[in-house]
Write a protein that binds this DNA or RNA. Structure first.
Lengths: 227, 227
DNA sequence: TTCAAAAAAGCGAGCGCTCGTTTTATATCG
DNA sequence: CGATATAAAACGAGCGCTCGCTTTTTTGAA
């Protein structure tokens, strides 16, 4: 894992692939059986939902707006989900799914602590670069699903933080990092990673791409931890 | 400025004071003339709005919920604002107001770069500690006010980032910091500051208070920048 | 290969209801 | 009483969602 283009070859996170996963996970509620029909329509639905929600919020988006913008009728929409809440849950679930897929890949688990930390941060940046609107959506709308959504968000947050914390703790034990509080440092690296997708427009305007962002992050975190 | 308790003595950011400012700034729309009546009611309205919105979002919060929870009738509510959007704007405006008040205070402008950076970060943490729910609200709901809200948020974000960037640039010029990109470092300090209020519950659960958070932040950023 | 029957997918007006807002009525107090 | 503040009731627009119907696709015996 050394650059964004390598990452893109390793993981298929295209809209089609992601919506294919959604179709699998929600076979029970999606009434359209043929994948060749369902996947392209799901792509249209999800793309439009992300666009409208990330502009004004999920709740203000009416299903009539979604119908109009996506080109599917109200009736057609309701053969892909059985309630607006289910639509929200489909997207949140797919985000959690993708995090698990990408951040547990093998090469994050061995080798030099700084290299592992770099791999973890790079993976996070590349993942959120590919699925930007999904992550913005999850970040902003998790609470809209009430207690359950909040808990899902907190759990996912703590899981990622735990990956960072363990690598930092290993680095301290190995004498490669100075003796900081691993939990606090992990907790503070997380929001910097999140900034990449929350403030994506700002970085784009400044000409900072994913690889440049990772480079700065690794430099700063490296100096933060240097023994 | 050396601790949270000093900060609290220096700035009056009580609900009453903040709502007093709101009353001043919205004399045109608030129809209740007597401040002795208006301020306590505004406090109830704003407190309830922040509580309900930060749980489920501003848009999902109905004015009937707000009426019931705040103890004021629909009619009474509408003598304090002329639309739900105005209520949102009152809160956002007061947040911007408070940022300007606190972060431009004098002792942030002179002295050792690291001390100035510390003062700036400490002020930000203490401000957001005092006005936690206000900042969470502003962070999550700015986009609900459409283009205008988004631009207000971006402007405020860039202004704060600019304060950090200038101090870092001064530090580099003075040879006290290593030659990093001041804009990128400022951009990455900001989300760590924001994490204090966005994830406040997590830190509370871990027994990390504002002063401890500032200490960690200063330590990490100091090592990040050490020449 | 053909073509009607069956199955799948899509359509959109309309339902019940809740929303933000307005209007009307009542209470409080100098 | 008159002014001010609050409470209660009412309104129309727009919401999520449904359902009777149409269109498209697939099927399979001739």
């Amino acid at each position: 894992m050394d650059s964004y283009s390598t990452f893109q070859q390793e993981f298929d996170l295209s809209m089609a692939a992601l919506c294919g996963r959604i179709l699998e996970r929600h076979q029970a509620t999606i009434r359209v059986r043929k994948a060749d029909t369902a996947v392209p329509n799901l792509v249209r639905i999800i793309e439009t939902t992300l666009a409208l929600s990330n502009r004004n919020g999920f709740h203000p988006m009416s299903l009539r707006d979604l119908s109009e913008q996506s080109g599917l009728s109200m009736g057609a929409l309701y053969s892909y989900f059985d309630s607006k809440d289910t639509l929200l849950l489909m997207i949140l679930g797919q985000v959690v799914d993708a995090i698990g897929l990408v951040l547990t890949a093998p090469d994050v688990a061995t080798g030099d602590p700084l290299a592992r930390l770099r791999a973890l941060m790079a993976r996070h940046v590349y993942l959120t670069e590919t699925m930007g609107p999904w992550f913005v959506f999850a970040f902003m709308e998790a609470k809209a699903f009430g207690k359950q959504g909040r808990e899902m968000a907190v759990e996912s947050e703590l899981w990622t933080e735990g990956l960072l914390r363990d690598v930092i703790a290993d680095g301290i034990d190995a004498g490669r990092f100075r003796p900081v509080d691993p939990t606090m440092v992990a907790a503070l690296i997380k929001p910097m990673l999140q900034d990449w997708y929350v403030k994506r427009a700002k970085y784009r305007k400044r000409g900072v791409g994913p690889d440049a962002f990772v480079a700065v992050l690794v430099d700063l975190v490296g100096n933060m931890l240097r023994a």
